[in-house]
């Protein structure tokens, strides 16, 4: 399958690969899988408790090139955003940016799921109510 230039770029130079301290209060961890293919992805964020801005994001993906590119892009996009802004990122935005073909849509869904799961984990740790985050999906 032909990957777009952007996918190839993220694949060859993935941004923000790595691990954040899972036990930190400021860190939210999202571990998700794509049932369509069995690939797995972990995305972590570190949130500034005062401003609710995501200051750091890391990922580790065991999956296809599109999943790696999607999660790499997702970490770039969430950085600098507040938690509620980050929740507005949709998998369709990722599809557009990376020009993913229909069979690779689920790879972008995986990245969106990972963002939501990471934010959900952070909210739970910090006692922030899960409100629109759940309803909007």
């Amino acid at each position: 399958m032909a990957y777009s230039d952007k996918v190839v770029d993220h694949y060859n130079n993935p941004r923000n690969v790595g691990t954040l301290d899972k036990s930190s209060e400021e860190v939210g961890t999202g571990l998700v899988g794509a049932p369509e293919c069995g690939d797995v992805m972990r995305l972590q964020i570190r949130v500034n408790p005062e401003t609710q801005v995501i200051e750091e994001a890391k990922f580790k993906t065991f999956g296809c090139g599109s999943a790696i590119a999607s999660s790499s892009l997702a970490t770039e996009w969430v950085k600098g955003k507040t938690v509620s802004e980050a929740l507005e990122i949709k998998n369709t935005d990722i599809v557009k940016e990376l020009a993913l073909p229909p069979v690779k849509i689920h790879c972008s869904v995986l990245a969106e799921d990972a963002i939501r799961a990471a934010i959900g984990d952070w909210k739970k740790k910090n006692g922030v109510a899960e409100t629109e985050a759940v309803a909007a999906h």
Binding site: L31, V32, G33, A34, P35, E36, C37, V40, N91, V103, I105, H106, V109, E112, D113, R116, A117, V134, H137
Partner: peptide, 19 residues
């Protein structure tokens, strides 16, 4: 592939231990 993105993400996830 056909149910990609359908349904809430939590419902599509395998048991956390397995993951």
């Amino acid at each position: 592939e056909e149910h990609a993105g359908k349904g809430k993400s939590a419902e599509r996830q395998p048991p956390p231990d397995l993951l």
